[in-house]
Simulated scan of single mutants.
Amino acid sequence: MTKPPAAPARFPFLTDPMIAVLVIATALALLLPAAGEARATATTVSNVGIFVLFLVNGMRIRRSEIARGLANWRYFGPLMLFVFGAMALGGLGFASLAGNVLPPLVALGFVYLGCLPSTVQSATSYTSLAQGNVALSVVGAALINIAGVLVSAPLFALLGGGGAGEIGGEAIIRIVLILVLPFAIGQAVQDRFIDKLIAHKSTAAWLDRAVIGIAVYVAFSGAVEQGLATMFAPADWAALIVLVLAMLGLALASAWGTAVLLGLPRPDRIAFLFAGSQKSVAIGAPLAAILFPPASAGFVIAPLLLYHLAQLVLAAPLALRLAKDAD
């Protein structure tokens, strides 16, 4: 007799290894921050890891998926505008609010958060759990992340202004060499390696987590050395959490409302909801390690890390509710 499929966990985020990686990296930075020569070594290791990660990403995102997504411009055009337009402007608005109660670099982190692409794995997983259009979600997430490599940094520079938001020639060179070049190489050699990557999918997933963990560790090490504990009072953490939850709630409501206004069928609306509202720490943490000095990066990515956790917490019950409504 065939066993029935196991019921999905009510709170799958609790079993997500990425949460443990982020918690461990942050705790390690608080207890044993990398400083001096150790920081230089950790930064080099982080940059090498980021290069390898984007090389693998170039290998595993099929060119056929990219072509198929570009053909469906009536869906992906509005989705791109929402992710890099509406969300970026929303981040700018929340940064203005945060500037009244939080340190400037943390407030700037809301602009950075708004400019990032959406997640790949979790957006697809929750679209499936909610009985949405999984194929559309997979292609959409791939296209958005490819665009994010090229769009997020200049968009952030445009909206973030000067200071930490200023991107000079050196940062552009690092982005090209560490993000764009390995991705392009991966696309070029994809046919030789994609089957092996599919066969070792779990190993590739742990590569993602390890690289993100190292980038977060390096970023928060710099913040700790700059006095994170003394600059951030409990009231500041409370204000940051409230603002992050408000931004996520607005993102979810706006993504669903936009999909309704576009007249998308329900499965496509669900795909739009998760692809439009979620933000990728897999792009955000490595990109921050390239854009910002370690003394600034930890403050800037603080809203991103909390947003990532919050989106996982809320996405699970939301997806189950959407699935129940569909039934």
Rank of each mutant, 00 (worst) to 15 (best):
M247T: 06
A86N: 00
G227M: 10
V101H: 11
N100E: 15
Y307D: 05
I167T: 09
T41P: 00
P286A: 11
F76N: 13
T26S: 14
E37G: 11
F183D: 02
R321Q: 11
Q226Y: 01
V218N: 01
G165W: 05
A205R: 13
T258K: 02
Y112H: 09
A289N: 11
Y126S: 00
L262N: 08
A29N: 02
L207D: 06
V300A: 08
A205C: 09
V218Q: 03
A40N: 08
P267E: 08
V151N: 00
D208P: 04
E65L: 11
L264C: 07
L30E: 04
N57P: 02
K196F: 13
V56F: 03
V216L: 05
L318D: 03
R74V: 08
A141S: 15
P12E: 07
A229Y: 08
W237S: 14
A184S: 11
G165F: 03
A288F: 04
L312E: 04
E170D: 15
R68N: 09
L264I: 09
A135L: 01
C115T: 14
F220R: 06
I146Q: 07
G161W: 03
G109I: 05
T203I: 14
A255H: 04
A271W: 01
L305S: 00
R321I: 03
K201I: 13
T41F: 12
A171R: 09
F193Y: 12
R68K: 12
D236T: 13
P33I: 07
A164T: 04
F299D: 01
N72Y: 03
F292Q: 07
L305M: 09
I175S: 00
M80K: 01
A135P: 00
E225T: 12
A316I: 00
F156G: 03
V83Q: 07
I167W: 00
G168R: 05
L97H: 12
V52S: 05
L207R: 04
T127W: 00
N47L: 09
E225F: 08
L14W: 04
G99L: 02
G36F: 06
T41W: 10
D191V: 14
G114S: 07
V45M: 10
L306P: 00
L252Y: 12
G36W: 04
S280C: 10
L136W: 04
